[in-house]
């Protein structure tokens, strides 16, 4: 009897925890600060300190930990990675194709020439002679909508 009650309680806890895994993180994105990804990247330095909200279709998600997602830009062939520390937010892989809003700041990370060309090779692009910079969007809040 006691074991049955305990198992039932644990099952309820599991179900409750499932319901709690919502589509907003840290209260959801602030849509009043919306900036297009192309504009954000064209004025990258400014948005490293100024908080903004970006919007885009989720094109890829970290398969293992859900610690990043790639958002499609309003510009063709352009996208931006939204990156969090492992565990801060966990983006579900099933969110691919949905629309995400992320509020936060931009981080500019210089790459070495080797890293640049590794990245370009993965994107089926020809190698270059000068290193590029990697743009990462560090969110404080996120909303994912269907």
């Amino acid at each position: 009897m006691k074991t049955g009650v305990i198992l039932a309680t644990m099952a309820c806890v599991l179900m409750f925890s499932q319901l709690a895994i919502g589509k907003t993180y840290n209260g959801g994105a602030d849509k009043s600060k919306l900036v297009s990804i192309s504009q954000l990247l064209s004025e990258a330095q400014r948005y490293t300190t100024q908080t903004s909200t970006i919007q885009g279709t989720i094109t890829r998600v970290c398969k293992k930990r859900g610690c990043w997602m790639q958002l499609a830009s309003d510009k063709k062939f352009q996208s931006l990675r939204v990156k969090v520390r492992d565990g801060d937010m966990v983006f579900p892989m099933t969110a691919q194709g949905k629309t995400a809003y992320a509020t936060g700041t931009l981080k500019i990370k210089p790459l070495t020439l080797e890293q640049t060309n590794q990245k370009r090779t993965a994107q089926n692009l020809s190698p270059v002679d000068t290193p590029e910079v990697l743009h990462l969007f560090i969110p404080t809040a996120v909303t994912i909508e269907d």
């Binding site: 094109t59 062939f77 996208s79 691919q96 194709g97 629309t99 994107q123 089926n124 692009l125």
Partner: peptide, 20 residues
């Protein structure tokens, strides 16, 4: 199809409700 995206010049992605 709910979304479309060109990640690069050689790949075109179509996002369906249950698959990509």
């Amino acid at each position: 199809i709910k979304a479309r995206f060109w990640p690069d010049q050689t790949t075109y992605k179509l996002f369906l409700q249950t698959s990509t």
